[in-house]
Simulated scan of single mutants.
Amino acid sequence: MSSTVLVTDFDFPDLDIERELAGEAGIDLETAAADGPEDVIEAARGVDADALLAQYAPITRAVFEELDLAVVGRYGIGVDSVDLEAAGDHGVPVVNVPDYCQDEVAEHALALALSCVRETARFDARITDGEWDWTAGRPINRLQGATVGFVGFGSIPECLAAKASGFDFKYLAYDPYRSVEELDEAGVEKVGLEELLERSRIVSVHTPLTDETHELIAAEAFATMREDAVLVNTARGAVVDTTALAAAIEAGEIAGAGLDVLPEEPPEESALFDLEDVVLTPHVAWYSEESITELRETVTRDVLSVLADNEPTNPV
């Protein structure tokens, strides 16, 4: 009897990649449009699913308790939507794509930082409103040789540092899980969070969302940062207290922010919307046509591999 993979939810135009790979492996592929765990459970029971491929749907403890699963695959790097403790309790491997979209996110973070420092979004908005005035973005200070602080230092900030080598940046990193020796080898100085905030012209957030990092960057952090500092977040929205961020920018505690992620997506409203010193993008840092293909192929192959009784390539 053939195994069945349920794609719980997706926003791709189609599932041609997944269907082709599943077909080659002799595996059935079914789809759903699940929003919550109850939807996931109902859909999986309806097709007798052995495995799940999930994009945004929460895979909670209830899912693991109610279903007999061989593996769960998550479209992406982050796995905060999957209850990993429950997966472990039920002996279900979880796979993701840990090296997914590294180039794209690194490039996007740098683009946000440059836009904030060079005021490109502000100038564009003013020109659209009929104003042609180079002083609208004053003051703009040179970025060459500035200090960049990474909150979390994994493969994406390492990629960013390499791409930005021509700027002659000084790199700092706050990451309790990386050793001084590891960071030295990458050309990065390991520091505490407070020191990073005090010294950095650009603060770029790259941590996963956990209980430890939820609103890690909040009012106290903004009070510690330089007045000319720019915050960039391409990680998870809830790592930053955006209400406190808006207040800090309005009060002149920091210069601005470039955010690709927000605590609520899509946001209904935010104090950030009315601030010219904020550049927002719709959680798109991951995107390129190439990255989508790599994402889908990689996680699907890993799920199919587990169903074939092989060890996963990317276990969380």
Rank of each mutant, 00 (worst) to 15 (best):
M1K: 09
T4A: 14
V5G: 13
V7P: 04
P13H: 13
P13V: 13
P13S: 15
D14N: 15
R19L: 08
E20A: 15
A22D: 00
G23M: 02
A25M: 02
G26V: 03
A33V: 08
A33C: 09
G36F: 05
P37Y: 12
P37I: 11
V40A: 11
I41M: 05
I41G: 06
I41P: 00
E42F: 10
A44G: 01
G46T: 02
V47K: 02
D48L: 12
Q55H: 15
Q55A: 14
Y56L: 14
Y56Q: 11
P58D: 11
I59N: 11
T60A: 14
E65K: 11
Y75C: 06
I77N: 06
S81E: 04
V82G: 05
D89I: 00
V94E: 10
V94T: 10
N96C: 08
P98I: 03
Q102M: 13
D103W: 06
A106E: 00
A111Q: 02
A111V: 04
L112Q: 06
C116W: 00
T120H: 12
T120D: 04
F123S: 03
A125S: 14
R126N: 05
I127Y: 06
I127F: 12
D129T: 09
D129P: 11
D129V: 08
E131T: 14
D133Q: 10
D133V: 04
A136L: 13
R138H: 08
N141A: 09
L143K: 04
Q144T: 12
A146I: 00
G149K: 03
V151I: 06
S155M: 10
A161T: 06
K163D: 10
K163P: 04
G166K: 01
F167T: 04
F169L: 09
F169W: 03
Y171D: 07
Y174S: 09
Y174K: 10
D175A: 01
D175V: 02
P176I: 02
P176Q: 01
R178N: 09
L183E: 09
D184V: 05
K190N: 13
K190L: 15
E195M: 13
L197Y: 06
R199Q: 14
R199E: 10
R201F: 10
S204D: 09
T207I: 10
T207H: 12
P208H: 08
T213Q: 06
I217D: 12
A219T: 05
A219Q: 08
T224D: 00
R226N: 01
E227C: 15
L231S: 08
L231V: 03
A235W: 02
A235F: 06
V239W: 08
V240F: 08
D241C: 02
T242W: 07
A244R: 01
A244H: 01
A247W: 00
I249V: 12
A251Y: 01
G252S: 10
G252L: 09
E253T: 13
L259A: 07
D260T: 01
D260N: 04
S270V: 06
A271P: 05
L272Y: 05
F273K: 03
L275S: 11
D277Y: 00
V278S: 08
V279Y: 07
L280V: 07
T281D: 05
T281R: 02
H283T: 11
Y287F: 15
E290M: 13
S291Q: 08
E297F: 11
V303N: 06
V306F: 03
L307E: 07
L307M: 04
N310A: 14
E311H: 12
P315T: 04
